[in-house]
Write a protein that binds this DNA or RNA. Sequence first.
DNA 1: CAATATTGCTCAGTATACTGACTATCAGTA
DNA 2: TACTGATAGTCAGTATACTGAGCAATATTG
Lengths: 163, 163
Amino acid sequence: MIRTVAALKENSVKDNNDMPGHLARRFQQIAVAVFLAEVGDAGFDLTPVQYAALATIKANPGLDQVTLAGLIAYDRTTITGVIDRLVQKGLIERRASPRDRRARELEITDEGRRTLRKITPAVESAQRIMLRGLSAKEGEELMRLLRKAIAAGNELSRAPLRE
Amino acid sequence: MIRTVAALKENSVKDNNDMPGHLARRFQQIAVAVFLAEVGDAGFDLTPVQYAALATIKANPGLDQVTLAGLIAYDRTTITGVIDRLVQKGLIERRASPRDRRARELEITDEGRRTLRKITPAVESAQRIMLRGLSAKEGEELMRLLRKAIAAGNELSRAPLRE
DNA sequence: CAATATTGCTCAGTATACTGACTATCAGTA
DNA sequence: TACTGATAGTCAGTATACTGAGCAATATTG
């Protein structure tokens, strides 16, 4: 099918399916739904955002909130609530940093470690399901293109990735 | 770099960059930021979601909320607020349907039409910017793969696309 | 070392998204 | 026609995201 601006009806808007922004929203919507379904079926109550935060805290013990936000590209005002909920679920601990009294150090708890371990199969299953329409090669290509587009646009959002 | 499960450190989680769900979130985040920046610079205050709704209402005069939601894959509980805001901005009108007293008919106003026309360059510019890291061919391929993955996962979210 | 700038975090407000429940209405059928 | 089920829309509650503002503490600099 021809999909160029010239081919569109006069006065008409580009079809949603030609808008990368719309496709991004739609794919993300499905990705979240699949994640929640798989994780929920496995008996856990954790969102994709909470999972990424938890996994990153485990991999970087004692990191502060801003660093965590940078590692997963969350806004610093968003991370506050995410951490609140992880603390409330007993999966992490938040305590004042001894070196910088502005900062809070984050640490995973044993319960958090246990949850992370048991939840992993469901998370991996979810990643497979959200790509189920694609061949393995296509899935890899999709991820490659997303990574490339994201790298080029990193600084355009308020919450860029910081290594 | 080798990116297989077997190659990961024991006990470690997959890298975020290997998670299609994470990449989806990140790309969408950038897409929204770029859209708001371009549209804002052009002097308009419209979100991606509001834009898609407005464009779809224009293309389908008199449609009801559920049909609109289906055409752009929004949840029916989300569309209520989106429409509220479009009405409040004077871009659309919502009135009771004469045929079905449960339903509301949606119609674009002249102001909405004018806005849509003037905003289009900014919207198209935004779509280009969010793909600026990719060649034209890669951009097309990314959209193709997203469309394919979305088609296969359409029924997995609460708000599937309905033609 | 005092003034200034920057940083870490939080908060209030707004806008998607979704869950689950509810009302009003409509459609199909016994 | 009375009953049943489905549908259109809304609402309350929760969880991302972001804007913009603000406080406290640290870093920088004249």
